[in-house]
């Protein structure tokens, strides 16, 4: 549904995309993950028809994005980082304009707008001017304009940037609800959001998808299989090692806690969440359990940092 092959884009001396190749299957939600300047926005802009690719192939819904927005027709809905709103327009009028601009017949425009407003929880704001909307509502209005013509593909550039935690949760649910009906490609800095929302993550570094044996087809499974457990324990090291040994198949990190004198910081990975078992064993060994935590996302973060650091500077 979305496919790039050897995509290259040069801005003067800067090579923003350097042979980017990835594929997103129809009906799935994929994340473009990367540091600032990795080429995420450039990729989305090419796929949306805003930018012409220098070299390579970019196909969206079977259409060649090199032909621009005209060639893509109404196959794509695009939400840029700043929602493209007209401040003076009322929300319903704005959506009607966006729909008509993308070829929705006049007689269908009204129902489509109402349907979209309802789906995004914006029905009460239909008569509000776009300039008077809050930041979160502007984002919703931005998604609404991208969805109102029912495109098969949605491209969202940093859709959750600047939202408060409650809005992030709402937005995540909203985007997740599109799964199956639309192919969604979103860019984000937030690893945890990508892990929670995406079926697949394309890790970008210096204009290309990171290649690593741990990645399948240049992509990272969004939900990491393992758990990282962290414990802070007061007591002696040999007894702690002995207590945790049955739980750990590989080696684990054990070091004096940097902030708590006399305490030990332990970290190890396991295939499942072993917090309960670890806590029981520590207590039964007569050690003092000061802290216990599992950080699933840390694995993704660690892998992200490791992989993006490994990339040679081109």
């Amino acid at each position: 549904m979305i496919e790039t092959q050897g995509l290259v884009k040069q801005f003067g001396r800067v090579r923003a995309l350097n042979g980017l190749t990835f594929r997103v299957e129809a009906g799935t939600i994929a994340g473009l993950l990367g540091a600032n300047g990795a080429g995420k926005t450039t990729t989305l802009s090419i796929l949306a028809g805003r930018l012409a690719p220098g070299q390579g192939l970019a196909r969206v819904a079977g259409l060649d994005a090199a032909g621009g927005a005209l060639a893509l027709g109404s196959a794509v809905g695009f939400l840029p980082e700043t929602p493209p709103l007209y401040a003076e327009m009322r929300l319903a009028d704005y959506l009607a304009f966006a729909a008509r601009l993308r070829g929705v017949p006049k007689q269908e425009t009204g129902p489509r707008v109402e349907e979209t407003l309802a789906a995004l929880g914006l029905a009460d704001l239909a008569g509000r001017r776009c300039g008077g909307l809050s930041h979160g509502m502007r984002r919703r209005a931005g998604i609404a304009q991208a969805l109102v013509h029912r495109p098969p593909v949605l491209l969202l550039d940093e859709p959750m940037a600047g939202l408060d935690p409650a809005q992030v949760v709402q937005f995540r649910q909203l985007i997740a609800s599109l799964r199956g009906r639309h192919t969604v490609l979103l860019s984000t800095h937030q690893l945890s959001e990508a892990a929670k929302l995406c079926d697949k993550v394309v890790l970008m570094c210096k204009g290309r998808a990171v290649e690593d044996p741990r990645l399948a087809n240049g992509s990272l499974p969004a939900r990491h299989q393992g758990y990282t457990l962290r414990l802070t324990v007061r007591g002696d090291e040999p007894r702690l090692r002995q207590a945790l040994a049955p739980l750990v198949s590989q080696t684990f990190d054990l070091s004096p806690h940097p902030l708590l004198p006399g305490a030990l910081a332990v970290q190890f990975t396991a295939a499942e969440d072993l917090r309960e078992e670890a806590a029981r064993r520590v207590v039964e060994a007569g050690l003092g359990l000061l802290e216990l935590g599992a950080a699933e996302e840390q694995d993704l973060e660690a892998l992200f940092l490791e992989l993006t650091r490994q990339e040679p500077i081109s």
């Binding site: 949306a48 028809g49 805003r50 927005a69 005209l70 893509l72 027709g73 109404s74 794509v76 695009f78 840029p80 700043t82 929602p83 493209p84 709103l85 007209y86 401040a87 966006a98 601009l101 993308r102 070829g103 304009q145």
Partner: peptide, 14 residues
């Protein structure tokens, strides 16, 4: 400047 240009840029119009 306001960003609304993207709406026109990504619409199937010349």
């Amino acid at each position: 400047q306001t960003g609304s240009w993207v709406l026109l840029e990504t619409a199937p119009v010349t």
